[in-house]
Design a protein around this nucleic acid. Structure first.
Lengths: 200, 200
DNA sequence: GTAGTATTTGGTCGAGCGTCCAAGGCGATC
DNA sequence: GATCGCCTTGGACGCTCGACCAAATACTAC
């Protein structure tokens, strides 16, 4: 295809996105500058505004692509599992790869925060998260969970909070909380509505 | 007492801290500048470095004080409840005041993130969170929970993730997930270890 | 009042920021 | 080999930043 000239462009663009993926987590969304970005990508800073409308647009694009990649990988675990409960537990164990201090974990949280201040990013993130949650909800519904919607929301919140807390407390492990996670994903209705038999 | 001169200083200092409390959530940790801070506090920007060693020190101080205030308020709910399960559920309902987009919610998450990049802040946050978690663990232990440590970790992660997700999905409500929260805080051992009776 | 101390002001410093752009490089096409 | 279009360069623009400091101010103590 000898499109070497165009390939050059695609390459630089991809390297800029990869650099953004790393730096958002390392430095924080607001601390990523065109110059550090260009340096990490091995290009000159002028290129940023050739390939993207603005620095924010670059960061948005990089963040959404990475979040989608992570969510896709995670929901693949759900699809390949024998039951939703197993799938969710595998997802939890899979979360151990995000130790809460690596750039992938932090990118996720940074993107959440940036989304509260950037309308376009917020819409993109909402769509991705809603998709993921509806997969979860659907799986839980099919398995007969009495509150599939609430359980899916809870599992999602738990996962993100899990990653957040790992940044402070490295002792927090997936195996540690897996047994209790099963209580949520159980298809049985909870039998106990009030536990005050145990005073002090 | 005519310490009017010192009072002036205390007042300016307090106003700077209050401004930081607001702005960290509104703009993001890294976007708070000495000048916006001073403007919000109604003082001149030079005062920042008179009352504090650096901008970072001011932000650290303000964030840790506010997080402690929030955690203290929340654990008061636990202390005043009939049982840990009730207390935890009240804490969850109390979380509804943090809608995920207000400056209080965002300050919390911003501080988590900033702690991964600021050693001193990280130590302060770790101590506060560890304190809170140990209160929870102790309460769950006294009530006979089979896995008090794991349950406390889980509840904490769930709460923070809950706030995080509310920023994207305002439909997420505490009442919605309260019934499932009880499954975690239940003092009974989970009876089901494997739920694959429901294929597809 | 005078001296002394704590607080506040207003401005400067060098550095880094996002954005823009004219000029140059470079492979494809004729 | 000339022309064309995409890609890249290097620098300039105006601006904000954290930090710092000498002078001015406000209050206290003598």
């Amino acid at each position: 295809m000898g499109e070497t000239n165009i390939e050059r462009g695609r390459n630089a663009r991809a390297r800029l996105l990869a650099a953004a993926r790393e730096l958002i987590g390392e430095l924080g969304w607001n601390a990523v500058s065109t110059r550090t970005l260009a340096e990490r990508a091995g290009v000159r800073s002028g290129l940023v505004h050739y390939h993207f409308d603005s620095l924010q647009a670059l960061l948005r694009h990089a963040a959404l692509a990475e979040v989608q990649r992570m969510l896709d990988g995670t929901s693949a675990l759900l699809a390949g599992a024998a039951s939703p409960s197993d799938g969710i537990e595998r997802m939890l164990l899979d979360l151990d790869q995000y130790n809460g201090s690596d750039s992938a974990s932090l990118l996720f949280v940074e993107t959440y925060l940036a989304a509260t201040r950037d309308h376009e990013l917020r819409q993109g993130m909402s769509a991705l998260v809603a998709d993921f949650r509806s997969s979860l909800t659907e799986a839980l519904t099919r398995s007969g969970h009495p509150r599939p919607q609430a359980a899916a929301s809870m599992v999602l919140a738990l996962f993100d909070g899990f990653v957040l807390h790992r940044g402070l407390d490295q002792g927090l492990s997936a195996e540690h909380i897996a047994p209790l996670l099963r209580r949520i994903t159980n298809t049985e209705e909870s039998r106990i509505t009030n536990t005050e038999e145990d005073g002090e």
